[in-house]
Design a protein around this nucleic acid. Sequence first.
DNA 1: CTATGTGAATTTATTCACAGCA
DNA 2: TGCTGTGAATAAATTCACATAG
Lengths: 207, 207
Amino acid sequence: MRYHKIPNETIRRLPIYLRGLTLLSQQGLINISSSKLADSVNVNHWQIRKDFSYFGDFGKRGVGYNIETLTRRIKKILNLDAVHRAALVGVGNLGSALLAYPGFKMYGFEIAVAFDNDPAKIGTKVNNVVVESISKLSTLAKRQVDLGIIAVPEQAAQDVADALVRVGIKGILNFAPRRINVPKKIKVITIDIATDLARLPYYIPST
Amino acid sequence: MRYHKIPNETIRRLPIYLRGLTLLSQQGLINISSSKLADSVNVNHWQIRKDFSYFGDFGKRGVGYNIETLTRRIKKILNLDAVHRAALVGVGNLGSALLAYPGFKMYGFEIAVAFDNDPAKIGTKVNNVVVESISKLSTLAKRQVDLGIIAVPEQAAQDVADALVRVGIKGILNFAPRRINVPKKIKVITIDIATDLARLPYYIPST
DNA sequence: CTATGTGAATTTATTCACAGCA
DNA sequence: TGCTGTGAATAAATTCACATAG
């Protein structure tokens, strides 16, 4: 199984496993079987084994997986073994929520820089990050930031994306509810809350 | 094609089409071809036609689709033709962002009720919704709310979910970064920001 | 006896290619 | 001619079943 194309779905699940492993490790466990991990992350046990098998042998038969080793290897696969510095653009409610969000640290992310265009916000500190004027976005080029997070209103999203691209960002997490166009070597992940919510009623009987 | 099981992926795409159609309609267009719609939502044209074909004939050959009719039919399929009232639990930064989020209205959602456990927030109005004490959550049963939105810290998420289930909610949009257990007739969609961000570095060269 | 790792079978989703209607 | 609608072909992902290692 070692020389295969990795399914995208597998990559999508790896961070989920990572979260489960962190939880289990906090409970003091050292080893974990695919079935136990499966219970904790709501995926089938054979799915987990198959996913891991794309990357080589992770476990010991009869025993399971060593949580620490497994965690380290998944982080390596996902390129999460170095700290990633991200720049947040837009410090509204959503942006502030992101700055306060504890979940990033687990994966080695740090929102190192924040921009907004509201003079009332510029210069203030939100969660230990000083908000800078969006006109300073071009200074990012020399500041070792490789990810951009777009949390501005829809209308401004494309302009911000263009600016981030100009400054050499490699990946973008986009919260604006629209498609943004970037050169295809730059990876964009869009999180569109409303389109997720919109399919909920489909699965709900009657109403 | 009419008597087929509908792929989950098709359902996931319908809200995206809906957004594209809204945009095109605002531009004054009446009809749209699958190719044009495809351009605007970043999906292949044959994929769009295939998706629609599961539900019957939507378009006119040689002409395309009537935007208004198509919009109405998709909303009907997704059960979005009636207004859905949602209850938000947790009015922190994320909750406030959700209350202010304009995207919900497009799909016929209204956050009608909001709960928090912070005495400083209870009684205040955020975006025209009065924040109520979380102890009042049980009153939801008689208040025509069918969706719950969980925007509380991870530790509280399961308790809130339990309470929402007790009160008869039919679907849950969960922003807490953990799996929540509910009876399986209740549909849960979890939006986990960090796990989406975590796969970004995988797609980024070197770094 | 337990739990992994993986080919093979199956299911699900995408893509193609074109017949057929306006 | 232009564009839909859809079977058939491909591709991708999931699930199974079991040989194999500790």
